[in-house]
Design a protein around this nucleic acid. Structure first.
Lengths: 367, 367
DNA sequence: TATAGAACTCGTAACGTTTCGGTTTGTTGT
DNA sequence: ACAACAAACCGAAACGTTACGAGTTCTATA
């Protein structure tokens, strides 16, 4: 017993000895205050302790610069207070803005965000998810690239919460935060119609991506409701890249000399479309009216200022974080009740409205 | 003892009982193979085991779906295989591009990146660093907002590696990855000079930020080497925001009717400058020649295409990751030798060259 | 003032690894 | 066949928490 004494010197002694700081542990606090381990732990976790002990503990914590070891806690509680995030492209303002928002909120709740960029590659996305699973993050936030939700399996099986961003996955029952893409596209088309346009082109996203489908459907619906039959040659499908946007715009213009307006269905392609027009010497508004997507900053920098569909990134972030936080709380509580409640849960789907941001890129051709 | 037996059923049994998967542990593998704990651990960490045992172990791992618990390992080894990243703005393409690059490399080495956006707020930056420290990340990558390196103290004291991005901190001895801002600005000025410009304006960054200082100095030097005395009224200092860029461009134009060219010292302000010119009805190149900074995509979308200084984000990322990885290895090895070697280390500073990306935004006014 | 009940405290046993020192097994050269 | 040595193996003790059940101290009521 005496040997034990001499071996486990408290933090202060160790400090002296090593010549530099060694983190104090809960044991050091217990020893210093004369209280038991469990009492300290209870205090640290918001439990009640007698006033005089509270003072004692706080003094000891102060003096020894104690900080709880979150790794040890994590081992015991089986949670890392860490959320994994997998997105297609970090250097994509739409993604980045949402992530920033989520990060802010989650950090305020003690959660760290581990971010993985899968570069729009389904394989990389799988890798990233597995990586995060091995890192034992408590939940996953994902703007999915894979069509089926196969890559989500590890988290599904483990019953860990998943929140999908921007894109719904058919046949996958997950919490998701989306925008009303259909309505957004319809609005854009309507603005063109109100300004007298009839031959309206669309630069759409990949047919296999949710947002691409929805926005295209909205475009078609908008036209049909005005009694116009959508024509295939007025539709060009790009791959959500700048290059794709340039190509589509060129195609559209070449095949449709009579086209007066174009709706572009994401930010990168909007940029590409603008570049394409510049290079072809075609003037926005004067020659062809344009409504783009996302990124108000780019829109303001265009000449003339570009009208765009704006997505509520701030709110998307808030909703996603809320959803995650709720699920996290649920699974914490679920320890008490039967584990069934978790597996029985159904994914909540939140659909937020977009808004139009004014610009000068749509010409009124009625007069 | 018999009670102990019945309590610690192996993973397979537990699996059956609970009705859903329970992670197998190293103990389960030991039991299944009849080998000792230490042997399994040794195998997992790349140690040598006898061929037949290797096969045994691998089979057991396969069968029980064993995966090492990185949290438990972290508790024991005192490292989380996690790196903290603190940046001023995630939705800033320059930042985002560097982070993506770093993330890719670090993940390939088993490190996760915990990213914190401090919104260019020194206080938030301090918070973020403390947060990461409590999360016990193994190292810190930071594009600093605070002037003095005070916010880095926790990591300094703990002897945990720090890599600074983009900005050097005076009096702080840290590994840093920078670009040659001075030379970049000189190059831009020289291009203007070669095209016959003499009255060259500059939209510079905040006086207290490293890159702002360097780029301004480069501008001054470039002029002086050509025998031109820099004039204060040709210099407008912004705050690296779009709004600031707009304001500066307006000021410059109002105060200098004879100005023929402007160099803008970061991306956001470049965008702002372009917007400002658009709104004032001033044409790029024709009226005023412009060289901007960063973001080739934006430059390509401008009309006429904007000439810019390009920073090698890919290489910045590589160097930063390399630096971090090396330091990490060093501190791992340092356990053997005296701890002195760590504290004695001096910060390595890597300075990378920028390049000019062609555009049509500089007019030759000699003819 | 005694006492029931609540409120607080305690020791011990986990959580799943790694590591230390010592033991066993295998290999080589004679 | 046997020493001598290396390589592989082993159990137990950590790492710093939390959680359980039981024990202790308060507080309020009779």
């Amino acid at each position: 017993m005496s040997s034990r004494e001499s071996v486990s010197a408290d933090a202060a002694e160790r400090h002296e000895k090593a010549g530099n700081t060694v983190a104090a542990t809960i044991k050091d606090i217990a020893k210093k205050t004369g209280l038991g381990l469990a009492t300290i732990s209870s205090y640290l976790n918001g439990g009640n302790v007698r006033e005089k002990n509270r003072i004692l503990i706080e003094a000891a914590i102060e003096e020894l610069h104690f900080e709880v070891n979150e790794v040890a806690r994590g081992l015991k509680t089986n949670q890392t207070k860490t959320i994994g995030v997998v997105i297609p492209e970090l250097n994509n303002v739409f993604c980045a803005e949402i992530i920033t928002g989520i990060e802010d909120i989650m950090r305020n709740h003690g959660y760290a965000l581990v971010i993985c960029d899968c570069r729009t590659d389904p394989l990389r996305e799988c890798d990233a998810v597995e990586f995060l699973y091995r890192k034992r993050v408590d939940g996953l936030i994902n703007m999915p690239v894979n069509q089926d939700g196969r890559h989500l399996k590890p988290f599904m099986d483990a019953g860990k919460p998943i929140v999908l961003l921007d894109r719904k996955l058919n046949g996958v029952d997950c919490d998701s935060v989306l925008v009303d893409n259909l309505e957004a596209a319809k609005q854009a088309v309507n603005i063109f119609l109100q300004n007298g346009h009839r031959r309206i082109g669309m630069i759409g996203g990949p047919a296999e991506i949710y947002t691409g489908q929805e926005r295209l459907t909205g475009y078609r619906l908008g036209l049909m409701e005005a009694g116009i039959t959508p024509e295939e040659r007025l539709i060009a499908l790009g791959d959500y890249t700048i290059r794709g946007g340039m190509r589509c715009m060129r195609e559209l213009i070449e095949h449709n000399p009579d086209m007066t307006a174009v709706f572009v269905a994401n930010y990168e392609m909007t940029m590409g479309a603008v570049i394409g027009m510049n290079e072809m010497g075609i003037h926005m508004a004067d020659d062809i009216s344009v409504i783009g997507f996302d990124n108000g900053e780019f829109a303001r920098a265009c000449k003339p200022r570009l009208m765009i569909v704006s997505q509520p990134t701030r709110e998307i972030a808030e909703r996603a974080a809320d959803l995650m936080l709720t699920r996290l709380k649920e699974s914490a509580n679920a320890k008490d009740e039967g584990a069934v409640s978790i597996s029985r849960r159904r994914g909540r789907i939140i659909k937020l409205p977009t808004s139009m941001t004014e610009g000068k890129s749509v010409r009124n051709i009625t007069e």
